[in-house]
Design a protein around this nucleic acid. Structure first.
Lengths: 80, 80
DNA sequence: TTGTGACTCTTAGTCCGTG
DNA sequence: TCACGGACTAAGAGTCACA
């Protein structure tokens, strides 16, 4: 599983859970709307600082964004 | 707390726990030794794919490398 | 509201060294 | 064994018009 797709799926899922548009997330994270789009689709290869900014805008830990879907599909199963 | 330092401390700590040199980790991860050095010191801004390669070489999950564990700050009294 | 190609500018990442 | 620097090439950051 490509880590970029994994991060993208997590960002998109959490963003939707919070009822945000890509544009709103872009504004909150200080990134461009099309860049957020690229990250969510897994075609961008973001640096750790960018991921940090997105995580901050979503008010979640960076570890949540890089976690495999299998682990965080149900929060109950997470082991740290 | 700078996420880059956080990742750097985690990489350095886990690498030492496994008794590996920077050069050995560089070889296993397919990255350059000077780059590993920079990541550990927090002066590099690695992409998510690079972090995954390092995580793979250390046989840990990516989430472990980005985790902000309070244990790290007082680990061995290291000053950064 | 989001996807996409095509950019420019900046930095990620390599390779040569030294102390 | 590692920190650190200079110079370099590949790739990411960041933006836009348009679909």
């Amino acid at each position: 599983m490509d880590i970029r797709r994994q991060v993208g799926m997590n960002v998109a899922r959490i963003r939707r859970e919070q009822g945000l548009s890509q544009e709103e997330l872009a504004f909150r994270s200080g990134l461009h709307r099309t860049y957020i789009s690229g990250v969510e689709r897994g075609i961008r290869n973001p640096t750790i600082t960018v991921i940090q900014e997105i995580a901050s805008a979503l008010v979640v830990d960076v570890a949540i964004l890089v976690a495999s879907t299998k682990q965080n599909s149900k929060y109950s199963g997470i082991r740290y």
